[in-house]
Nucleic acid binder design. Structure first.
Lengths: 202, 202
DNA sequence: AAAATTAGTTATAAAGTTATTACTATTGGC
DNA sequence: GCCAATAGTAATAACTTTATAACTAATTTT
């Protein structure tokens, strides 16, 4: 007798498996056959749950986008100190990437047909919101006197984004998501120290 | 009568076309048929010049790796001021990425068979050398008193790498390599300012 | 100018991938 | 416990992609 799972459970499994494979071999290299094989199913079984293969990626992107948004919201609760909110925002995002190491791939994924980027819009939108949150908190930190007055909030946001990107690249090269949290905390502190009026750790 | 080019010229064309396509649709999506079509050739014509498709990527990676190494060498000539060398090193690399916007893709490219990263070794090695050059110049700047004494050279190098990565991501999302030089200069100065003893622009 | 070399073509094999159709059998609702 | 709904399979069509083999013709060598 073959095992039969609920559509809901199976869809979760399919999406998680696709994400795992996306980190291992890259999203564009993942085939429906690979996903099915990992789950002990036949390849057409995938099509009982998604009309098109791309629908799997769309579902994954929507889910990741939600998680990014949730982290942004969570980081703005509780602590009112802008610099602390910034740290919570960035570390929360790194935690998300650690749990879903394929996430960065979705930021630069392209459409099959033309060369134009589709970047499953949900993720691109969420990352835009992430950037807005960075800028907002940097402005608040400047107003609070924690960061120096002449600092350009947009440029500072780009540098903080760079901390994340730098860690992501090292994660992809080393294939080790664990470095994100360990080195992330220290590097973020170092970056923020450069924004203070005195150059000291805020 | 059909046009027939020398093997040397044709190989250059094939590699440049493959690089262009790699930026447009991603390296893994580029097919021998696409390259041939762009050059007005038939698909098997590619195999007159390379035994395997992967040999095209290997040749490209070797070439890019050389250019990265050349930039590192060039940046260390002439100006003896460590901070100026650092700037020349980073801006030179950004120029290279601007001219070859697919370069960053090769840093995280994966093998088809297993999930293991091959990162055409030539590029990974060159990027390691780039990082070493960053650290060396940062150490020199600390010793010269241009950067503050307590600065960790490795962490500072990661942050500078982050500036590059941040710009690269924005280039990939906007599909506009032009931003690299314009914003790069300003962001690099901002980043280096965070490393000075006073927090001022070095 | 003839001969040798080789860039390029035509045709095609082999393998992989997406997606559909018709069938099967498990499961939840009545 | 029956039955409707549906998760899953088997078979297969359509397409894409890599690669090879045999042939053709442009260019180089002698």
């Amino acid at each position: 007798m073959r095992i039969r799972k609920s559509a809901e459970d199976r869809k979760s499994e399919i999406e998680q498996t696709a994400l795992d494979l996306a980190f291992k071999i890259g999203p564009t290299q993942v085939t429906t056959g690979m996903i099915a094989k990992k789950l002990g199913l036949t390849q057409p079984a995938i099509y009982r749950h998604y009309p098109k293969k791309d629908d799997i990626w769309a579902a994954i992107a929507a889910h990741l986008g939600e998680q990014i948004d949730q982290n942004i919201a969570a980081s703005q609760n509780g602590n009112p100190a802008p610099a602390e909110r910034l740290k919570k925002l960035v570390m929360g995002h790194l935690q998300l990437v650690k749990e879903n190491p394929a996430l960065p791939e979705f930021m630069v994924i392209r459409d099959k047909t033309d060369g134009h980027i589709v970047v499953q819009d949900s993720i691109q939108d969420a990352m835009t919101a992430f950037r807005v949150a960075l800028v907002t908190n940097i402005r608040a930190a400047i107003n609070a006197g924690d960061f120096r007055a002449g600092l350009d909030a947009n440029d500072a946001a780009t540098l903080i984004f760079g901390v994340v990107q730098s860690l992501v690249l090292r994660m992809m090269v080393t294939r080790n998501p664990a470095i994100l949290m360990k080195d992330g905390q220290r590097l973020l502190d170092l970056q923020l120290a450069g924004f203070t009026p005195t150059g000291e750790n805020p």
